[in-house]
């Protein structure tokens, strides 16, 4: 009878170490942020309905205001409030729409605020259109070329909540020549709580 004592061979060890090193290199070399984890961006202008696979989104109106007003509080802007009305229509079950930010031409991010009764996020069931008003306190130099980024995933660190998921990026259509007018607007806007929408994203006529 023959005993095979040397189970650990040099060749086997070298193979294992080599395979491990190769795997580590692969993990480190492949660009996660730019390729593997990149969200699926659906772009469009204000007024167009975007299909995000889990929901349809229409940005209906973009305004600016110095003061926001709701039934319970009044909020004064540090810069100016960029007020965006949007309509969601969930298509994939109950969905929490958690991500809302404005990205300016330089790539800076601006979060939505709940001041003045605005929505930082919203949620809805399928079967009806749901309207929400988002407000962003932005400085003057963020207005021109600003885009709105809405999704069910949160922004978080490196857009962690939006990896491999659809994200709507809406060009707010603000040109350099619009900036003065928008910035000087001293309006007070009354913010409505999120609720059923009758208009654009509804084709079968929702609850009203």
């Amino acid at each position: 009878m023959r005993h095979t004592r040397r189970r650990l061979t040099w060749r086997g060890t070298a193979f294992l170490v080599g395979a491990f090193a190769a795997a580590c290199t692969l993990v480190n070399v492949v660009p996660h942020g730019t390729i593997l984890e990149r969200p699926f961006v659906v772009e469009g202008p204000v007024g167009e309905t975007l299909d995000l696979s889990y929901a349809e989104l229409t940005v209906t109106e973009v305004r600016t205001a110095d003061t926001l007003e709701s039934s319970f509080e009044q909020a004064v802007a540090g810069g100016t409030f960029l007020v965006v009305d949007a309509t969601w229509r969930a298509t994939d079950g109950y969905i929490v729409f958690a991500g809302a930010e404005v990205i300016d031409a330089e790539g800076r991010s601006f979060w939505a605020t709940s001041r003045g009764g605005c929505a930082k996020g919203t949620n809805s069931q399928p079967g009806y259109a749901w309207r929400a008003t988002y407000c962003f306190d932005v400085p003057r130099d963020a207005l021109a070329g600003a885009t709105l980024r809405l999704a069910r995933g949160t922004h978080g660190e490196d857009d962690a909540g939006q990896r491999r998921d659809a994200v709507a990026v809406v060009d707010l259509g603000i040109g350099q020549h619009d900036v003065n007018e928008l910035w000087d607007a001293t309006e007070k806007i009354s913010i409505e709580m999120p609720g059923f929408a009758s208009a654009p994203a509804t084709d079968a006529g929702g609850e009203g």
């Binding site: 509080e73 909020a75 004064v76 800076r108 001041r115 003045g116 306190d137 400085p139």
Partner: peptide, 15 residues
């Protein structure tokens, strides 16, 4: 916010 007494949830860049 000392201006209006609302809860200041976030502070955006440049604001």
């Amino acid at each position: 916010s000392a201006e209006d007494g609302t809860n200041l949830d976030s502070i955006n860049p440049g604001i």
